[in-house]
């Protein structure tokens, strides 16, 4: 499974979304379950899936799926298609 596919599955699982609700352009404001607890779950899931532990500042600054990709790419995790 590519990192893009892993991230898509993670987002679906953390925020309990249907596949039709997902896109790589998805914004936090569009997702009801991307609340403060969702931020915690996403940080736990990213650590389990990609081995990187968000700092609290990073976790709360993320506002979209694209932000997750951008941040993880700065840590050397590639999301090339």
């Amino acid at each position: 499974m590519s990192n893009r596919e892993k991230l898509k599955k993670l987002i679906l699982d953390v925020f309990l979304l249907d596949e039709s609700e997902f896109s790589f352009e998805l914004q936090r404001a569009q997702v009801d379950t991307w609340d403060s607890l969702g931020v915690v779950s996403l940080a736990v899931g990213v650590h389990q899936t990609f081995g990187y532990h968000f700092t609290p500042e990073e976790a709360t600054s993320i506002q979209s799926v694209a932000d997750v990709i951008k941040l993880l790419e700065t840590k050397g995790i590639s999301f090339d298609a």
């Binding site: 993670l10 699982d13 309990l16 379950t33 607890l37 915690v40 736990v44």
Partner: peptide, 19 residues
């Protein structure tokens, strides 16, 4: 599905997924 949505499950030490 309700367990997954419970606030406590969402702060479990590891991610609890639908599958």
């Amino acid at each position: 599905k309700l367990v997954l949505r419970d606030p406590c499950s969402r702060t479990n030490s590891t991610l609890v997924r639908p599958d």
